[in-house]
Simulated scan of single mutants.
Amino acid sequence: MTKFDREEEINGSDTCRTIEVEVVESLSPPPRPPPLKLSYSGDNFEVDELFLPPLNFAMVDNDIFRSGFPDTANFSFLESLNLCSIVYLCPEPYPVPNMEFLKSNGIQLFQFGIEGYKEPFVNIPEDKIREALKVVLDVRNHPLLIHCKRGKHRTGCLVGCLRKLQRWCLTSVFDEYQRFAAAKTRVSDQRFMELFDVSSFKHLPMSFLSSKR
């Protein structure tokens, strides 16, 4: 804090007065700490990589996760999940950097090419959803990540069918789907989940059938 004096004539007289003016330095908030950066290498815990989850990332069940398409910025986060498998629901080839990441971490890729149709021209292939669901339910593939492009429709349908196996009521299945799809909610997706027949999966262990809502 500093002070300075200023002399000012009043009404043209020789009388002067001294005005003390205080100059207060602006108070700025303390700097925010940098984002937490973590990585694990051998027995050493190092601070050098940002843990950033993919778009729409969430835990579905024990060792089952969902998200949108992960990019290179998400690789450190995915490493922390110790994934064994990825279920990819788009028809486009997996990008080279992503394939290299999978190879370097011993992660198996299961691709089920479901087109990203928009209503009213939606044709969700039930056979591919069933095959993908078999992979998701096989504990030998866990921990596992399910993803499509945005983690909304194709991923939402697959997770919704899993919820039916877990005996969730349709209201709860739809609520979860809508939470991720938001304004992009599709009636056709919900209709597909409603009509999906889970009877062929009744042989599942009880651990998969115990999550009720």
Rank of each mutant, 00 (worst) to 15 (best):
64 I>Q: 01
64 I>S: 02
65 F>D: 00
65 F>P: 02
66 R>I: 10
66 R>E: 07
67 S>L: 08
69 F>W: 09
70 P>C: 05
70 P>A: 06
71 D>Q: 09
72 T>L: 14
74 N>Y: 09
74 N>T: 01
75 F>W: 06
75 F>M: 05
77 F>H: 01
78 L>N: 06
78 L>W: 03
79 E>W: 01
79 E>K: 15
82 N>W: 05
82 N>Y: 11
83 L>G: 02
84 C>A: 12
84 C>Q: 14
85 S>R: 04
85 S>M: 00
86 I>T: 08
86 I>Q: 02
86 I>Y: 05
87 V>I: 14
87 V>S: 08
87 V>T: 10
88 Y>D: 01
88 Y>S: 09
89 L>H: 12
89 L>W: 00
90 C>D: 04
91 P>H: 07
92 E>Q: 06
92 E>P: 07
92 E>C: 13
92 E>R: 09
93 P>E: 09
93 P>K: 11
93 P>Y: 08
94 Y>G: 03
95 P>K: 03
95 P>L: 11
95 P>T: 14
96 V>A: 14
96 V>C: 07
96 V>M: 11
97 P>M: 00
97 P>I: 05
97 P>Q: 09
97 P>G: 11
98 N>K: 04
98 N>M: 15
98 N>G: 15
98 N>T: 15
99 M>C: 04
100 E>I: 15
100 E>F: 12
100 E>R: 14
102 L>G: 08
102 L>H: 12
103 K>P: 01
103 K>Q: 14
104 S>Y: 01
105 N>C: 07
105 N>H: 14
105 N>D: 08
105 N>E: 06
106 G>P: 10
108 Q>V: 15
108 Q>N: 12
109 L>S: 05
109 L>E: 10
111 Q>Y: 10
112 F>N: 04
114 I>A: 06
115 E>W: 12
116 G>H: 07
116 G>F: 04
117 Y>P: 10
118 K>R: 14
118 K>Q: 15
118 K>N: 14
118 K>I: 13
120 P>R: 10
121 F>K: 11
122 V>A: 07
122 V>H: 08
123 N>K: 15
124 I>L: 15
124 I>G: 00
124 I>M: 11
124 I>T: 13
125 P>Y: 11
125 P>V: 12
125 P>H: 05
126 E>F: 03
127 D>V: 12
127 D>M: 11
127 D>S: 12
128 K>I: 01
129 I>W: 01
130 R>G: 08
130 R>V: 15
130 R>M: 14
130 R>W: 01
131 E>R: 12
131 E>M: 08
131 E>C: 08
132 A>C: 05
132 A>W: 04
132 A>D: 00
133 L>P: 03
133 L>I: 12
133 L>F: 11
134 K>R: 14
134 K>W: 03
135 V>R: 01
135 V>P: 10
136 V>S: 04
136 V>F: 08
137 L>P: 03
137 L>Y: 09
137 L>Q: 11
138 D>N: 15
139 V>W: 03
